[in-house]
Computed example of a mutant assay.
Amino acid sequence: MRSQQALRWLPFAVMLAVALTDLLAGPALGFLPLLTLGPTFASVSGSVRRTAMVGVAALAICVPLAYHFDLLLTWQNNLTIATIVSVTAASMVASHLRLKRERELANVRRVAEAAQRVLLRPVPRRAGDLRVALSYTSAAAEARIGGDLYEVVTTPHGVRLLVGDVQGKGLSAVETAAWVLGAFREAAYDEADLADIGERLEVSLTRHLGGEQFVTAIVAEVHDDEISLVNCGHPAPLLISPDGRVSLAEPPEAALPLGLGSLNTERTKPHRVAFGEGDQILFYTDGVIEARDRDGTFYPLTERARVLLKEDDPQTALDAVRGDLLAHAGGPLLDDAAMLLLRRN
């Protein structure tokens, strides 16, 4: 807001400074051509009309000063006036083109935001006896989504969720994330067995991915006092007990990421871990644990996860972890970072 106000008054400040300098220096040096800086700066942030008004103000300053120094009808002053008029006209054209690009960019952003809301829908804050919190930080400037993905759905088979990370960045990663989410949303309702959901995702990605592209993912299903996990090459989630114990829900056997199923003939099997009253489980992507500080130290998520016990509201607790993560990185993250927290009441 302050920067916008500064840009708004900058043309007038510059022209005033030029006028005072010209008065003090006299006609010998001739600073009046620098009045063209006024409309030039005005075109950066102002409208076409405002740029024209600044140009008129530049002429209103130039003419009295030229009269004061008896330069009103000289070739030097006529050239200065012509320069101010020409620069003002060019600045008006530049302002018009800038405003046109800004309107086009605003329209593109609105379309992109609508597409993002369809792709990554807000997760429900409650699902069965669970309270859900989400944190998503995209590495792409001005973007709300990237290559990380998540979904939480309540199905006839129970509460099921997906957390994943697409290899790569940019639009291609977003497109792959859309394929994974679409396949999961169908399979989560259709398939009774959790492993079958993983098979459906693998088949869908095999059709659309090429080369050595892959997606790490965890598919989970919540049961009474337990949670089933199918881990396809994804970082193991953290289990946080009410007494502060933090442990990794590591799978008994390592599995390949989605999209590389042809390299392994064995089916990825689900495994169960205890998830009872007061327990929390934190799913995350590698952008969280691979965030480095200035010394190159990775973010110690296992140590900082106890922050989740300090807040009654899961979203407030997860926001605290996100703030700690950004403070550790000391600036924008180099990779997308998603965290999904389930807390059992």
Rank of each mutant, 00 (worst) to 15 (best):
M1G: 13
M1F: 01
M1P: 08
M1Y: 10
M1H: 01
M1C: 08
R2D: 05
S3A: 08
Q4F: 02
Q5H: 05
Q5V: 00
A6C: 05
A6I: 05
L7F: 03
R8D: 03
R8I: 01
R8G: 01
W9K: 04
W9C: 00
W9S: 00
L10Q: 00
L10P: 01
L10R: 04
L10D: 00
L10I: 10
L10G: 04
P11A: 02
P11T: 07
F12R: 09
F12Q: 10
A13H: 13
A13D: 07
V14M: 05
V14L: 07
V14E: 03
L16H: 08
L16C: 09
A17S: 15
A17M: 08
A17L: 14
V18P: 13
A19H: 09
L20P: 06
T21C: 06
T21Y: 11
T21I: 08
D22M: 08
D22S: 00
D22E: 15
L23E: 07
L23I: 12
L23Q: 13
A25V: 09
A25M: 13
A25K: 07
G26L: 08
P27F: 05
L29D: 09
G30E: 06
G30P: 09
G30I: 09
L32V: 12
L32Q: 11
P33Q: 14
P33N: 04
L34S: 11
L34H: 06
T36K: 00
T36P: 02
L37P: 01
L37D: 04
G38D: 00
P39D: 15
T40M: 13
F41W: 14
F41T: 01
F41R: 04
A42E: 11
A42P: 02
V44L: 15
S45I: 03
S45K: 07
S45R: 04
S45M: 09
G46R: 09
G46L: 05
S47K: 08
S47L: 01
V48P: 06
R49E: 10
R49A: 13
R50A: 12
R50G: 14
R50W: 09
T51L: 05
T51Q: 08
A52H: 04
M53Y: 03
M53C: 06
V54C: 12
V54W: 14
G55H: 03
G55C: 06
V56W: 12
V56E: 05
A57P: 01
A57H: 04
A57W: 04
A58H: 04
L59G: 10
L59K: 12
A60M: 02
A60D: 03
A60E: 02
A60Q: 00
C62Y: 03
V63L: 13
P64S: 02
P64V: 11
L65M: 09
L65H: 01
L65N: 06
A66L: 11
Y67C: 11
Y67I: 10
H68M: 14
H68L: 15
H68K: 08
D70P: 10
D70W: 12
D70C: 03
L71Y: 01
L71M: 10
L72G: 08
L73N: 10
L73M: 14
T74H: 04
T74K: 04
W75E: 15
W75I: 13
Q76W: 13
Q76N: 15
Q76G: 14
N77S: 12
N77T: 12
N77M: 13
N77G: 05
